[in-house]
Design a binder for these strands. Structure first.
Lengths: 141, 141
DNA sequence: AATATTATTGCAATAGCTTGCATAAGCAAT
DNA sequence: ATTGCTTATGCAAGCTATTGCAATAATATT
């Protein structure tokens, strides 16, 4: 059982402040059932709370990433998308042809991580990777 | 021995045209000894040939990627960089702390590629990946 | 060599995201 | 509750990259 810690608590112990904007951005990401873009977050958040600027949305997302509350992924389409961090699936196979996104387990990267560590002493961050390619259905063009 | 095929030839057999702009962009990438940004390419190319617009540079780079003559990589810093394709090294370990970039062999991704293929039927493109993390020297902060 | 066809370019507008700076507001101490 | 310190926000400007469209230029045909 993981203790639920409030956003206020998490922020304050690092010297950050709780603001309505931060609460609302986080809630918007958590409320969304799909990967949501910054623009969508802004639209939703602004409807609830008019004092909500797009640059604040971006800055808040940056902060929530740092706090490991939100994850950012590039699924193509020229915009980054966001979802709550800490879910089971951690990577995304993105088909260039049909656009389908399949979520996969993080474990597939573990062997590669180890190899980069052993061979180059490099500590790679493989989190919420968008992996582009061609899905099974689209194989033969 | 690989036969050298001219740019004109490669373009024409696909229905594309040879233009001074295309020649000069390709030469700028090939002449550069490091990863070069679109803006740098534009500056160099414009000096040689005044009829050279930044949007043409971007469109030409897109084309040269498709022709496998040029590779694009995200090494951070908010801009994409380009280099001639088909060199031995294919991926790049980018240290978030000191910014050092270490080029590595493509083979490290082969096992992962196979695994994604076997488990999900997914044909992943792992080419010229920028892999972010922490290098050996920066390990202990 | 001139003409027709169609790919390509330049320009300007636009999209997504970031940043500097003055103002506003959260928090701690009184 | 008020004050003071410092973080956070809004605004506007700026950066990298993309796109629609009219003008231009490369190729194939005559």
């Amino acid at each position: 059982m993981k203790a639920e810690r409030s956003l206020a608590e998490i922020l304050r112990e690092r010297g950050y402040r709780l603001t309505p904007q931060r609460m609302i951005v986080l809630e918007a990401v958590e409320a969304s059932d799909h990967h949501i873009s910054a623009e969508e977050i802004h639209t939703k958040a602004h409807a609830r709370y008019p004092y909500m600027n797009i640059s604040t949305v971006y800055r808040t997302l940056e902060l929530l990433k740092e706090l490991d509350l939100v994850a950012e992924t590039d699924l193509g389409g020229g915009r980054l998308v966001y979802h709550p961090a800490g879910k089971a699936h951690h990577h995304h196979l993105v088909c260039r042809k049909c656009g389908k996104v399949q979520d996969i387990d993080r474990t597939v990267f573990e062997r590669l991580r180890d190899e980069l560590k052993d061979r180059y002493g490099f500590n790679a961050e493989f989190e919420h990777m968008g992996i582009f390619g061609t899905c099974e259905a689209c194989r033969g063009q």
